[in-house]
Structures are given as C-alpha cells and as structure tokens.
C-alpha cells in the first residue's frame, strides 16, 4: 500500500506527471471519440438522403 502511495506521488511531482498524461489522454481520446461520432453522423445523414432519393424515384 505504501509502495503504491509513493509510486503515485511520483517523487513529489505527481501533479505535473499525472496531469501531463491526463492532458494527453483527453486530447487523444477526445479526438478519437469526436472523429468517430462525426463519421457515424455523416453515415446516418447519407442513409437518410439515400432514402429520400429513393422516395423521390418511386413517386
């Protein structure tokens, strides 16, 4: 337990080390999630359009 505490303390620099990794994680994971959502949204939009176009053709 003590070992774990010393580890997370990072020699007294815990704030700096862990916030650096947090910043990187937020940046990378955020980019991944936003990009994925953007792609899915485009895909839905495209399907809707296709459906609309099919509707137009059958009229």
């Amino acid at each position: 337990m003590d070992q774990l505490v010393t580890y997370f303390a990072m020699g007294g620099y815990a704030v700096f080390v862990w916030s650096s990794y947090a910043a990187a994680a937020i940046g990378l994971v955020g980019a991944l999630v936003l990009s994925w959502q953007g792609w899915k949204a485009r895909e839905r939009e495209f399907e809707d359009l296709r459906a609309a176009r099919r509707g137009q053709e059958t009229q």
């Binding site: 991944l32 990009s35 994925w36 953007g38 792609w39 949204a41 485009r42 895909e43 939009e45 495209f46 359009l49 296709r50 176009r53």
Partner: peptide, 15 residues
C-alpha cells in the same frame, strides 16, 4: 476514420 467522414460529406453534398 475522419477521411471516411470527409468522403461521405462530399458524397452528401453531391447527393
């Protein structure tokens, strides 16, 4: 992944 989205966006504009 972003490229897929961009290609779809171009297709959507055309459609």
């Amino acid at each position: 992944i972003r490229l897929r989205a961009e290609l779809l966006a171009a297709k959507i504009r055309n459609a």
